[in-house]
Design a binder for these strands. Structure first.
Lengths: 214, 214
DNA sequence: GTCTATACCTCGATAGAC
DNA sequence: GTCTATCGAGGTATAGAC
């Protein structure tokens, strides 16, 4: 029979909460790389597990399914982008919104994995029963209405011409951004994403910008 | 011992050549549908075989591998597009090239499966060891240089401004086309591809067109 | 929270009869 | 030219010990 000592140094369980978050972070990191290389269809949770130093079942403990893992990846992507575009809490208005997209292109030039993730998942998720289909629809509609509102504000503020076709311009701008990213992935050395996007914004300004009036 | 009859009606072997071509056509048709739905990664030759009324091994007799089947699909796609753009043997010059792209968008509006095939395969083939990677690189470089040449001709003919940045404009136009097709797949009712592409071409003309001089 | 073991499926491709 | 049968690999997910 043994009594516990009066004063014990509790093993302290090494902050399990903290460890869990660390594991999740590593897993998402590895998933980003895999999706960037092979798309969601092409990614395997076994390989992601191996790359993040955990067993396949260990991974599934944190993310109960492949789709759940994808959701975590997309959530981080969206969070990062929003942080970048609206980090200071303010929403760019008028031409500032288009200038912000040029900055976004510049930032994306430094993160090819994320560009690849976005390009691949967007294309796959076009399918109606893809696990990211709803995400894609939300992404398009929110990005598009953000740009449309920026244009409406620009018109209201007098920096943009009232005849500017907001929906067409916003769809075209988003499409161009997506399309250029794809070309850049195929040929990173040969394509200057920033120059392309900037040229497009110049073109829009040359057609629709009004002289700043007070 | 038996002699062959003097006059025989040869069994005629039911034109095996003809049958083979018919089988191949059906298989490619089914593959187009499958790739349109699930991409190349997501397509399975077993399902394609089932959909085209042949066994899996029967399919592999005509196309020895999955990659070979994809190649056949892409070949038909490219052949159809070239037929449409250069059907009469002439190459559109100057603004006619951009107008031809508007027509192409109109035609694509009637062929969602082909748009889906293109969007998915393009995104997948961005990966360096994808079986369609070389095809994609060739596609981009040939489309791009066609447009660049059309612009150079336009400048030479005096219908386009010499300051028009040919490479940027051509990359942007191709990118916009690709990006709009993707948006259209997600929301066919809400996106008018032709209107978007036409607006872009209008924009370019408003900036770079020169008054026709004799 | 992480592991091993495994169930169960689908895939691409081959072998060989007809 | 088309079939059945089968191989071997690789996929997601679950069960249960530690």
């Amino acid at each position: 029979m043994s009594f516990p000592p009066r004063y014990t140094i509790e093993p302290q369980t090494r902050r399990p909460r903290r460890r869990a978050e660390e594991s999740r972070r590593q897993i998402v990191d590895a998933a980003v790389d895999q999706i960037a290389d092979a798309g969601f269809h092409g990614m395997s949770i076994a390989e992601v597990a191996a790359a993040s130093g955990i067993s396949q079942s260990g991974l599934l403990h944190h993310f109960p399914s492949k789709a759940a893992l994808l959701a975590a990846v997309l959530e981080r992507h969206e969070h990062d982008d929003n942080e970048f575009l609206f980090g200071d809490g303010s929403t760019p208005l008028g031409w500032a919104a288009f200038d912000a997209l040029v900055s976004l292109a510049a930032r994306n030039s430094t993160r090819p994995e994320w560009v690849a993730v976005f390009v691949r998942v967007s294309a796959e998720a076009t399918e109606a029963d893809h696990p990211a289909h709803d995400w894609l629809k939300r992404h398009y509609s929110s990005t598009s209405s953000w740009l449309v509102e920026a244009i409406e504000d620009g018109v209201r503020l007098g920096s943009m011409h009232p005849d500017m076709p907001a929906r067409l311009v916003s769809g075209n701008t988003i499409g161009l951004l997506d399309g250029i990213q794809q070309q850049w992935l195929v040929n990173p050395k040969g394509i200057d994403m920033v120059a392309h996007v900037r040229e497009h914004v110049h073109l829009l300004k040359s057609r629709w910008a009004l002289p700043a009036s007070a």
